[in-house]
Amino acid sequence: MFLFIIKRLLQIVPVILGVTLVVFLIMQMVPGDSAVILAGEGASKETVEQLRVDLGLNKPMHEQYISYISNVVQGDLGNSLKNNQPVLDEILIRLPITMELAFFSILITVVLGLIAGIISAVRPYSYSDIGVMVVALLGISLPSFWLGILLMYVFSIKLQWLPVAGWDSTAHIILPAITLGAGGAAIVARMTRSSMLEVVGQDYIRTAKAKGLAEHVIIYKHALRNALIPVITVVGLQFGSLLGGTVLVESVFAINGLGRMIVDAIRTRDIPMVQGGVLVASLVFVFVNLLVDTMYRVFNKRIDLN
């Protein structure tokens, strides 16, 4: 197990290097002279040249990349073009908010998805199954930003049960978390259902029946535990779309998280900020995937044998 984690850690090193390379290339892809852009509008020619030398922009690309990486490793993600403050400082303020949102959303994804999937699988092709699956299909088809707006309209504007936007109290978390978690919940529900239906056909379920166990024991004790194993991977992948989705949901609900920071930075062409935000979000995702992989392996070891 320990070896496995070490191996996976080594495997993600090239992935992380690749991610930094892509993020680094964002700057290079921007049309025009990086130094001019970084110096900001209205900077004098001298300032631009000074900056070019300071940041090593006159050096060859691979040297720039190496110095970019060494800066990143030291926690220097550059400075914002807007206020010249370190990008990392801003990220450290924004990231906890996004992580909190992501946490509650993934909770909704998992809990809601599992419950719905189990309801479906227990009586396949019944009305409850069809109902759940139709809702799940809607869940993967509705754009999150639209769902967010609809929820906001119904619960905040019409019913006035919940605050419209912002991030001050627990009540503020509810709608964004549902909005962000709904799509994932739908996918988890579909996966749980098909995984359960597959498990129910296995030999060991027949053994459990032959023992005389009641149906609920067979479903919850014998089938579900096995059915959940492939669902773990799906949840891990969902975490990726969920992190990406924060960009939209934070904009809908005016939450000052990392996602909104990136969008605002793109609008103001604050490239170092975009780079920092994208890099950090991707690193979080890479590590969450590592965690999920490890979990999957722990559970799957038992099953892989035959």
């Binding site: 992380i16 991610v19 990726g240 992190l243 990406g244 989705g245 960009v247 990136i262 969008v263 490239i271």
Partner: peptide
């Protein structure tokens, strides 16, 4: 395959965002 892994390491639409940030909206 390694390059594809890198592309998949960006969560959700963040890769698209990164590209747009460079190319402009």
């Amino acid at each position: 395959s390694r390059s594809l892994d890198v592309m998949l390491a960006f969560p959700g639409i963040l890769l698209a965002l990164a590209i747009i940030s460079a190319l402009g909206p």
